[in-house]
């Protein structure tokens, strides 16, 4: 299996990713996550605005999948991965979310950048936006534990 196939299989298998309706688009080693709008994502029906928790979860999942993708690409080393390749899902240690604009009832995008990846911890910066890339609705930075338990 190719590294992208592994990623697609993983994303399809995680209930919480399906619950939020998140899908991933790939350009080389860069992932763009898309959370299509649905009424279940609303926190404030009067504005209306996306729930900060939904946006936060979206940012976190984007970071996790970027790390998994990087690991799979590195493990594949340009070739294929075994059929039973089981990606280790990184666990958040701490994350700080900044809510910059109210999330409109529209599709939301996110990308994660690895600021530093060590042996045990990856430090990530994640940004989410809607119709304009330069107008972030939320950003986050956090540390993720790579494999193993805490």
């Amino acid at each position: 299996m190719s590294a992208p196939d592994i990623l697609d299989r993983l994303a399809a298998s995680i209930p919480y990713i399906r619950f939020l309706g998140i899908v991933f688009e790939r350009r080389g080693d860069e992932l763009t996550a898309l959370m299509p709008y649905k009424p279940d994502l609303i926190g404030n029906p009067l504005l209306p605005a996306l729930h900060g928790g939904a946006t936060g979860a979206f940012l976190e999942i984007t970071a996790v999948m970027q790390i998994v993708s990087d690991t799979a690409l590195a493990d594949a080393a340009g070739g294929d991965l075994p059929e039973d390749y089981a990606p280790v899902i990184p666990k958040p240690i701490d994350i700080t979310f900044d809510y910059l604009r109210s999330g409109k009832p529209r599709d939301t995008y996110a990308r994660a950048i690895v600021q530093r990846r060590g042996r045990r911890v990856a430090n990530m910066r994640i940004e989410a936006w809607q119709e304009e890339r330069a107008k972030l609705i939320a950003a986050a930075h956090g540390n993720f534990l790579l494999g193993g338990s805490k």
Binding site: Y16, R18, G53, G56, A57
Partner: peptide, 21 residues
């Protein structure tokens, strides 16, 4: 529906984030 790791059955961290928020 909120499980983030099917191997362990543990809730996604985001679910805890949403609850705390």
């Amino acid at each position: 529906d909120l499980v983030g790791d099917v191997v362990t059955g543990i809730l996604g961290g985001g679910a805890i984030t949403a609850l705390l928020d």
